[in-house]
Structure formats: structure tokens, C-alpha cells
Design a protein around this nucleic acid. Structure first.
Lengths: 147, 147
DNA sequence: GCAAAAATCACCCGAAAGGATGATGACAGA
DNA sequence: TCTGTCATCATCCTTTCGGGTGATTTTTGC
């Protein structure tokens, strides 16, 4: 969170600088205020979008339609997960792997870098004793971590 | 989508109005440009957040589970297999992939070359519309080809 | 408030996987 | 016999994975 504040301070500073600069411009050019407004608007629209995504964390609701009344809805085995020392985040990555997503896709979905995904997946593979993601998925199912 | 355009037009109009209004302010008060900038920034931050959520936000994944009678030994869906044009051999490779085996291991198990396994898997991926083996496994399960 | 755990990211490297294409032999059915 | 399908194998090339290592930041539990 500290870094976020820092970044905001920086943006604030830059904004003020821009303001000063545009003030000059305003004295010279007639309609620069519109340009300035447009720029600020665009900038903060982008920032806002990023912020919105970052803060709320785009989670998708998964609606499972089962044509035939199925058994109890799957609940991941928390105990087993902790026994294996697998963190929630790691399990989350494992779930996405099980859905057939690539590291890159997972990274995009979770708004983290591909390297982070790789770290998580490597750890979870290690904890599961898997060498491949398909194997990890298989083991995850056997351990009751995945439906 | 039409409503979205409409809303955007409205926002544009309002923005222009605001710009005009703030122009007046600027002539009167000294530092109103900062205030104006702040307002614009705040406005568009909010708009951005809303936009971010609106555009990318919560989508629902609809997962249709193929009714698989629990308890009963799994029988691969022959019809579905043929509908997809997947041969028995290809399905065999897919099953081994689902068990987490590498191409090399599969080749060894079936006494064929690794290249052959790759050909089969490529074909089955193509027929399933999968790009990765994990995805192929996922789709295979959804199609009732795998337990 | 501070130590531990968790999450994040980077870089390198080799191995595995995947795409495209072409070729060959076996075999079933028209 | 000819044709189509299937299974087999190869080669070239690109992308993705996985392992290893190290580092910083954030969260959490005491």
C-alpha cells in the first residue's frame, strides 16, 4: 500500500507540473484548456480503469448448469490443502491450470506477471510432487483439491 | 450498445459544458485551473472505475456438465468421439495425457515413437479445439470422453 | 510493532510441447 | 484396383513449461 501512496504522490506532483506548464500554454494558445482538459480526462480515465480493476479484482462468477441433479457442489478440501502446505493463491493458480489456461492467460486474468504465475505453479508442482501441469491437475483431483 | 453510445454522447456534452463553465472561472479566479484539473481528474477517475468494471467486469462462465452417472464405471462416449472425428488411437493418447504423462512416457508405454504421439495429440487437440494438453483434458471431460 | 508467511517479479537455461508439412504402409470397402 | 482412413514417423521451427536463484513487497499472526 505504501508504494501505491508513493505513486499517487508522484502522479500528483506530475499533475501539478503539468498544470503549471499548461498554464503557460494557456496564456499563449487560446483553446489549450480544452486540450488540457482532454489530456487530464484521458489520463485519469486510464488510471481509473486500472484502479477499478486493481481494487475490485475482477472475479468471475462461475455458474454451473447441471442438467441432471448432481451431487453436492464441490468444496475444495481445505485441510488437505494445508496439509500439503499449499496456499490459497497457489490453489487458485492450480484451478486455472486445470481449466486449461496457459501461464500467460492466467497472468492476464489475475493481473499479475507471468513470472509470478510461474513461481506459484512451480511451488504447487513441488508440493504436489508433480512434474507437469497435467500431472498436477491429476494429483489435485486425487487429493480433493479440484472437482 | 446503443445506450452506451448515447451515454457517451451525453458525457461528451457535459464535458464541453463543464469546459466552457470552467473557462469563465478561470478568467475570474487565479488558481481555478488547478481546481478544474482536480475536478476533471476526479470525474474521470470515477468514470474510469465505472468503465473498467462495466467493460471487463463480472462475466459468467456457463459450464455445462455432462451427466455422468456416479458410481457406475465410466464408459467413454463413443458417439461423441465419432462426432468429433476422433479416432480410438487418438482418444487413447488423450487418456494418457489426462493421466499426466509426457509425450515421451506415452511413446514408451505404447511402443511408438515420440513423433507419433505428437502427431496424434496434435490431431486430437485440433479436433477438440484445444491449444494445450490441459485444455484438451478439460474439454475431453466436458465432452464425456474422459472420466 | 515485528517476524514469518505469502505474494509478487525478474532472469537464465534447457526441456517439453505444439504447429506445419510431408511421407509411407496397412487395410477396409466401393 | 482404387480410394479413403488410420497409424506411423520425420524435420523444422516457435512457443510454452519447468527448474533454479534471488529479491522486494504485502499480509498476517503474535
Amino acid at each position: 500500500m505504501k508504494r501505491l501512496v508513493l505513486i499517487y504522490g508522484l502522479i500528483g506532483g506530475i499533475l501539478i507540473a503539468v498544470l503549471k506548464w499548461t498554464e503557460y500554454r494557456f496564456l499563449v494558445v487560446e483553446h489549450s484548456i480544452e486540450i488540457y482538459g482532454g489530456l487530464t480526462a484521458a489520463t485519469f480515465a486510464v488510471v481509473g480503469i486500472w484502479l477499478g480493476l486493481k481494487l475490485t479484482g475482477r472475479r468471475e462468477r462461475i455458474v454451473v448448469k447441471v442438467p441432471v441433479p448432481a451431487g453436492a457442489p464441490f468444496v475444495p478440501n481445505e485441510k488437505k490443502r494445508e496439509d500439503l502446505g499449499i496456499t490459497r493463491r497457489e490453489l487458485e493458480i492450480l484451478e486455472l491450470i486445470a481449466q486449461g489456461m496457459s501461464n500467460r492467460e492466467i497472468a492476464g486474468k489475475l493481473y499479475v506477471s507471468e513470472n509470478t504465475v510461474k513461481t506459484h505453479s512451480s511451488r504447487v508442482f513441488d508440493k504436489l510432487g508433480a512434474r507437469r501441469r497435467t500431472q498436477a491437475v491429476q494429483l489435485g483431483k486425487e487429493f480433493g483439491l479440484l472437482p
